[in-house]
Design a protein around this nucleic acid. Structure first.
Ligand SMILES: [Mn+2]
Ligand SMILES: [Mn+2]
Ligand SMILES: [Zn+2]
Ligand SMILES: [Zn+2]
Lengths: 132, 132
DNA sequence: AAGTAGTTTAGAACGATTTTAAAGTAAAAA
DNA sequence: TTTTTACTTTAAAATCGTTCTAAACTACTT
């Protein structure tokens, strides 16, 4: 399926701007990035786009499930092109995130989900620190 | 150990403002809160404090390990008085966090820590959603 | 082609957090 | 104790990521 079809399937009009972003993000390579990172990539590709549009698109892409947003205590939003359930190593010093594929982690025992709720995804974060 | 001793042990001068915050946060009750939540509690306790001081103190307390900061994709920082390694349920709709004690989760299989790094803490996040 | 609903944009606005710099306070030195 | 020093608090300004506004533009429908 090409990017135009992916956008259509997600219920998004394939505008010029969304196609530029889709061409960068939906190439099958997993990456973690900020809005500013993406703007730099857009500029490097010879295009340009308003930062408002970049935020609009990222929000739409996220809400459609084309990308995810990472839980992060940094003050800049971090997005993830890996939409499968997976886990992360985090170097807290640098903020670097490294994917851990789902099958690399085995959760043997999980607590009971609170009454009236259902499990909506489990994420494991392994904080790592450079050895001295 | 009283709060003055806790601050001293952490290498922090026990100023009037830090003692007010310590009296609220270090009472042994586990809570998740924002800087604004804390300012409201300070006000309710009959005191007042500059928001800059609140941020200064929270950063110091966090860096000393007296409190933790939660990984959260919300744009307001969330702090946690539970400094033991533990896990969370997260209701993404409301942002509500519920503690899961460490022994409630059993990680059977963990991936190899990247070369040159050491494990610095594992956090499990279970996203939950209200049932319809 | 005309209509309409959705999209992009520059720039303004917003909200959380940090910085500034001056005044105040705690600890150390004398 | 007094003096000195380094650290802390504060209001206000600044910063920074993100969202809003409203006008121009574009994709889709009829
Ligand atoms: Mn955050
Ligand atoms: Mn922000
Ligand atoms: Zn990832
Ligand atoms: Zn907690």
């Amino acid at each position: 399926m090409n990017n135009k079809e992916k956008l259509r399937k997600a219920g998004l009009r394939p505008t010029k701007q969304r196609m530029i972003i889709a061409d960068i993000l939906l190439d099958g390579i997993n990456r973690h990035f900020t809005a500013e990172n993406l703007q730099n990539e857009i500029n490097s590709s010879g295009n340009s786009m308003s930062i408002a549009t970049i935020y609009n698109c990222l929000k739409k892409f996220r809400n459609c499930g084309l990308i995810k947003q990472v839980e992060s205590s940094k003050d800049t939003a971090i997005f993830d092109t890996n939409i499968n359930q997976h886990h992360h190593f985090l170097d807290e010093e640098t903020g670097e995130l490294i994917d851990i594929e789902n099958q690399e982690v085995n959760l043997h025992k999980l607590p009971k989900i609170p009454q009236g709720y259902r499990n909506n995804g489990v994420e494991v974060l392994i904080k790592i620190k450079k050895q001295i």
